[in-house]
């Protein structure tokens, strides 16, 4: 009698990865190490690359990202299902509950896991969480034009290009555009074959 039984898998679990809460006490070192990879930082962040101590990262995790009172952000560590290895982070920020919209940010700090679908899987987990769990209407993101791998990954996850902030980034003596992308709930539902029997 499996035909109409709903999938009982937790909303935080994907095919390759699952999302967990970062633990500032044990994970600050991971973040500090990832942020030492300047290529990673410059692909992921508009903030200029800089090096902060493990203690500072612990403080930042505790204060900014995981603060209890913060109602406009949800932040996760991305862990592989097979080896339980922490490979990066993903989260929602600037959540506007009334309008049903939020910004997605993701970064895989472990280079060995780039280009193999882990990021795309993490994004799909987050989308299901956002649309099915939080009942949001749309997700937004920005990505740098010099990061084609991420752009491809987001397009694979159903994000649609919506424009670009011209010459937004100044790095290596050159100017680059920042691309805007978005996905609506009904677009995600169509892609996931929602409403059909699982």
């Amino acid at each position: 009698m499996a035909a109409n039984r709903q999938k009982t898998r937790s909303i935080f679990v994907g095919e390759l990865v699952h999302l967990v809460s970062p633990n500032p006490e044990t994970d600050a070192g991971l973040f500090a190490r990832w942020m030492q990879d300047s290529e990673f930082v410059r692909l992921m962040d508009t903030d200029p690359a800089s090096l902060l101590s493990v203690a500072k990262h612990k403080q930042w995790l505790k204060k900014d990202l995981l603060e209890e009172d913060r109602k406009d952000g949800l932040f996760f560590l991305v862990r592989t299902l097979q080896e339980e290895k922490s490979i990066g982070f993903i989260g929602l920020d600037g959540i506007r509950w009334v309008h049903g919209e939020a910004w997605v940010g993701v970064g895989l700090g472990e280079r060995a896991y780039w280009g193999q679908g882990y990021g795309t899987d993490a994004m799909r987990v987050l989308q299901r969480y956002a649309f099915d769990g939080l009942n949001l209407h749309r997700l937004s993101l920005t990505v740098f034009e010099y990061n084609p791998r991420a752009i491809r990954s987001y397009e694979k996850a159903g994000f649609i290009r919506e424009g670009r902030a011209r010459k937004f980034l100044h790095r290596d003596g050159k100017r680059f555009d920042m691309i805007f992308m978005g996905i609506l709930r009904e677009e995600w539902e169509r892609r996931e074959g929602h409403g059909e029997d699982s």
């Binding site: 209407h137 919506e162 424009g163 670009r164 978005g182 609506l184």
Partner: peptide
């Protein structure tokens, strides 16, 4: 100039509206 249109980013009085992102160099 309008640089990006964030579709249906606003929900007001039962209607959905785009968010307009503008830029000036």
């Amino acid at each position: 100039h309008e640089e990006a249109r964030q579709r249906e980013a606003y929900h007001l009085a039962g209607k959905r509206w785009d968010g307009i992102y503008m830029g000036l160099l």
